[in-house]
Write a protein that binds this DNA or RNA. Structure first.
Lengths: 168, 168
DNA sequence: TACATGTTTCAGTTTTTATTGAAAGTTCGA
DNA sequence: TCGAACTTTCAATAAAAACTGAAACATGTA
């Protein structure tokens, strides 16, 4: 397989993977492109590679920067902005975990805590079933929170980081 | 908070959580509803509770059954079908993990394996960057695969299952 | 066999989400 | 201060996804 073909296929696969996980296809494709390019790309280069508009490029790159997956790079002497992506997939994974935890897990924990305070006769089986479910979910959510914390921490800590490299 | 209000809020939260994870909102809402109901519901009851059409109900319930998250229940003497959801969230999590692994991780591993065979001069930095990224991702994918396997197995195995209960 | 009680399908429609492209905004050097 | 080079915004549009409702299908019963 030729590089160009392989590149195109990777970008398309990464794009549909993203889409299945609630990440906009174009955003995932830009991320894929930047991951496999040796050097930073400008907005124009991204537009050309993926055949997308300037506005689309700008919005999705900004979003990737918000997620901490892409960085702006300034090249001395150049006025344009360039973009580059983290290439260590473990770091990518911890960034995503951290971000989704903040955006989704933390809010749901807040909601679950509120919902536990539902009033009503504990002998009513509807009330009981509801309370049991919520408690179950709440425990699970906290457990998940702790698991993500360890995962994120492992990548950050020098000691665990070194240890982890043995497994990669 | 009254039960009805809490129920509605839970269904809506679970629905938007699902949407953020690439799961259709209605499907997640039906799942939420069935999780908190003490007894199985019929299609008509689901329609009424969520204000959705019969077709929509049917399609999403079928999909939930495909995911292994909902079961058909036959009530003796009744002609209608009833539906119920797994209430142990750990089992739900392992079902989802198993299913997404099969549907998404396994295909991407196949693709990554193919993409590693890209031809081209290993000294070309574009080729090198591409190969490196793919290899990195491939390792990560396998690692993830193994992690999911352990997770799924832990829930299934009696021994680990018992052990896990200590933490729940 | 006719009919009552369900369930399933899917073409058409609605809703949501993503994308475009041009105008407005910003920054910097002369 | 002007204008070239570049970035950002956002109303309009396009594309994708979800939903409806009615017809077709299935199944058990008299």
């Amino acid at each position: 397989m030729k590089l160009a073909e392989a590149k195109a296929q990777f970008i398309q696969s990464w794009g549909s993977l993203g889409a299945q996980w609630g990440i906009n296809r174009t955003m995932a494709q830009i991320h894929a492109l930047l991951m496999i390019m040796p050097d930073p790309l400008s907005a124009d280069e991204i537009m050309a590679e993926l055949n997308i508009s300037r506005g689309n490029t700008n919005m999705n790159v900004r979003e990737l920067i918000n997620w901490g997956l892409v960085d702006r790079v300034l090249i001395p002497g150049e006025r344009k902005e360039y973009f580059t992506a983290e290439k260590d997939i473990w770091k990518v994974a911890t960034e995503i975990a951290r971000e989704r935890k903040r955006r989704e897990l933390e809010p749901i924990i807040k909601t679950l805590n509120q919902l536990q305070e539902v009033e009503g006769d504990a002998k009513d089986k509807h009330v009981k079933a509801f309370k049991d479910s919520i408690q179950n979910l709440n425990k699970f959510a906290h457990q998940t929170d702790r698991a993500i914390n360890s995962f994120v921490k492992a990548e950050e800590s020098w000691f665990y980081g070194t240890l982890m490299k043995l497994f990669k």
